[in-house]
Amino acid sequence: MKIGKQSIKLENTPKLLNTSSIVGPKEMQGPLAMYFEAHTDDIFFGEKSFEKAESKLMKTCINNLLGKVPTDNANIDYIFAGDLLNQCISSGYCIRDLNIPFFGLYGACSTFCESLMLASLFIDAGYATKTVAATSSHFCSAERQFRMPLEHGNQMSTTAQCTVTGSGAAIVVPKDISIQSPYITHVTPGKIVDMGIKDIANMGAAMAPAAFNTIATHLTDTGRRSDYYDAIITGDLGTLGSEVLVDLFSKEGVDISTNHYDCGAMIYDLENQDVKCGGSGCGCMASVFSSYFYEQLKTKKMNRVLIVATGALMSPLACQQGETIPSIAHAVAIENEV
């Protein structure tokens, strides 16, 4: 049921049955290493190209996920997946072999929430009994597409972020499945917000107003206060974008500084890993939520979380044509009790 301006209340409260995560070597040196389910030390993951490696990351992640639930591929009704590469090739080539009906999505780094949202809505509406949401990103394939060749000797801008090598996947089922899991209660699809930022090395600042817009709209639509949630988790605003977001809320008289987390700011050791403002990419929220935060929900250390993945919907081509960075954020509310 639609509530307020743009949120949807999932009256049948689908369950987030399980999640799976996988990351690359650099993420394993970060503070969340112990939470990731799988990892690879080889940036090529045994493949010949970075694109193939990324596809394999997602495939391994989905296979690990399906291995954890009492089902097999044939029982998955639909899969919603996306990544950063042109024409979403990581997802396409990954799901080619899985034989599951597929919705390919692109929302830049917001794709994880977009796919989780749609997967939940399909269950809520009764169109499916098992859906999977998955996204991936790879540092090297993203650098190749968006920035400079890897071996080129240049310096990162102080506001830049580092694309996470990783993937995350989640399976959503109707609430009548008896296994205890968190429920997906509300979703708020975001609007595109563009505050005129042009610097592609400062995506945190470009995306923060979109996160602000979606979170504020979500709170208004649901009539909740920000402290209703144990955690408001943004995807990859990084340290700068997070600071801007907290400031934008405090200008409205709302303090989110104590319960705001940002996956991009959490995944790396910001002091020692030379990642400037933190991590980014579709795999950032996917891997951090699917590991650390899902664990917090399962162990009831957190009971109500709002995950807000943020995406910058630009391309290098559009930026070269002088365009600004349009941004989007999607929110999904996940709660242990309904």
Partner: peptide
């Protein structure tokens, strides 16, 4: 709560610059 950022693009850009 107002869901739009109450700043012009230039003001926002200047605000971000103070943080970067």
């Amino acid at each position: 709560m107002n869901s739009n950022v109450n700043m012009s693009n230039q003001e926002y850009s200047d605000f971000v610059d103070t943080k970067a």
